[in-house]
Amino acid sequence: MRRASTKSSLALMAVLATGLLASGCTSTFSGDTIDYKSAGEKKGPNLAFPPDMTTTGGDKRYVVPDGGATLSGYSTAVKAKPTGKDAVLPAVSGMRIEREGNRRWLVVTKPAKDLYPSVREFWQESGFILLSDSPETGIMETDWAENRAKIPQDIIRRTIGKVFDGLYSTGERDKFRTRLEVNAKGETEVYITHRGAVEELKGADKTQTIWTNRANDPELEAEFLARLMQRLGYTEEAARASVGKKTATTAAASYLKKDNSPRLEFAGSFDKAWREVGVGLDRSNFTVEDRDRSKGIYYVRFVNSKDLSPENRSFFSKMFSGKSDDEMKKAKRYRVVIKDTSGNITVVVQDEKGTPEVGDTAVQILTLLDQQVGK
């Protein structure tokens, strides 16, 4: 157990006594390793991201009501399907996993507009609130949620949790972005990207906490891809076999050039570069307002950290609260442009009118992408 919130020991003992009287000795242990519960409906835009990025407000039409379906419940239903030879073979055709290293994505021979509602329902059934839901751009993003399955199921947790489950926290939160992209063959590519946060103790007496960034988890992304495949018709065994296991990777060199024309430079095809930059933007939590694959342009919003007040520069200074109108106005539009010259890829930043950005803002954006591209 990480801790029972920040309550004092005396308060915890009082709760324990109450729980012991009220609950008996029934175990609530679950073998499922994923059981997310969203932080709750937001009343305005979320500022759960670094101060140099921004997100759009949520569409509340698809909010999952309290007590809605969870992924653990869905997994139980999936496990009830036939096993053996029939379970190993894919239940549907026209769907496959592609991968490069530990990065995977789903490819479906179905129009994005027809696939989007099923993907939306998948996240809702998994216990998430959709903070952003845009069929027009093919992008949806969940609220910050906690994987309750990570909380140790010891006797204290099993007892107190029956009465005051909210007292217990893993000290971690996750959010996921899903992007549907039409490739050159007309197929729909589905990317799921993870973003994590962890609560850390600070101060001499360790009584205060701050939320800080937690590294992206490619295996958690793969887990949800496998579960999405089950939602779309695959058996659990076939989905997990398609996703495969984690492979060893080596640290990639930096592609960033910081001279008079800041840019990323690396060898590769346009298709791969488009995919890498797209995933990099998703994992870094940029707002992608639009994109034009034929021109190699992602249209994004970005906030330069120098434009924010000191109190709003901490990484998760307002993790679960709204963003002020003044801060929203500082989120400027930019273009991230991918150019392919005979297999040599260049990624540059332009302002919203197409004029090259060569200052600090361009370096900030490209630095964030450099941490993801090829990694």
Results as ranks from 00 to 15, higher is better:
Thr6Arg: 14
Ser8Glu: 01
Thr18Gln: 14
Leu20Val: 09
Gly24Ile: 02
Phe29Arg: 04
Ser30Asp: 13
Thr33Pro: 03
Asp35Glu: 06
Lys42Cys: 03
Pro45Lys: 08
Asn46Glu: 10
Pro50Arg: 08
Thr54Phe: 09
Thr56Phe: 05
Gly58His: 08
Arg61Asn: 12
Ala69Tyr: 04
Thr70Gly: 00
Lys79Tyr: 03
Asp86Pro: 02
Asp86Met: 05
Asp86Leu: 05
Leu89Lys: 15
Ala91Thr: 06
Ile97Asp: 07
Glu98Arg: 08
Glu98Phe: 06
Lys110Ser: 01
Lys113Trp: 06
Lys113Ala: 10
Asp114Pro: 10
Arg120Gln: 14
Trp123Gly: 03
Gln124His: 09
Ser132Tyr: 13
Ser132His: 15
Ser132Gln: 14
Asp133Met: 10
Gly138Glu: 01
Gly138Arg: 02
Glu141Met: 15
Ala149Asp: 05
Asp154Asn: 11
Ile155Gln: 01
Arg157Asn: 00
Ile160Gln: 03
Asp165Ala: 00
Arg173Asn: 06
Phe176Asn: 02
Arg179Glu: 08
Val182Pro: 12
Val182Gly: 08
Glu189Asn: 15
Val190Ile: 05
Tyr191Ser: 11
Gly203Trp: 10
Asp205Arg: 05
Trp211Thr: 10
Glu221Phe: 12
Phe224Glu: 11
Arg227Gly: 08
Leu228Phe: 03
Leu228Arg: 00
Leu228Ala: 01
Arg231Phe: 10
Glu236Thr: 02
Ala238Val: 05
Ala239Arg: 11
Gly244Leu: 04
Thr250Ser: 07
Tyr255Arg: 11
Leu256Trp: 09
Asn260Met: 06
Leu264Gln: 11
Glu265Val: 15
Glu265Gly: 15
Val279Ser: 05
Leu281Gly: 02
Asp282Met: 14
Thr287Lys: 02
Glu289Gln: 11
Arg293Ile: 05
Ser294Glu: 07
Ser294Lys: 13
Ile297Pro: 14
Val303Trp: 14
Phe315Ala: 10
Phe320Gln: 13
Ser321Tyr: 13
Ser321Met: 14
Lys323Pro: 02
Asp325Pro: 11
Lys329Leu: 15
Lys330Thr: 02
Arg333Trp: 06
Tyr334Val: 05
Arg335Phe: 07
Val337Tyr: 04
Ile338Phe: 00
Asp340Pro: 09
Asp340Phe: 08
Thr341Ile: 04
Ser342Val: 08
Glu352Ser: 03
Lys353Arg: 01
Glu357Gln: 04
Val358Leu: 00
Gly359Pro: 01
Gly359Ala: 09
Thr361Gly: 02
Ile365Met: 13
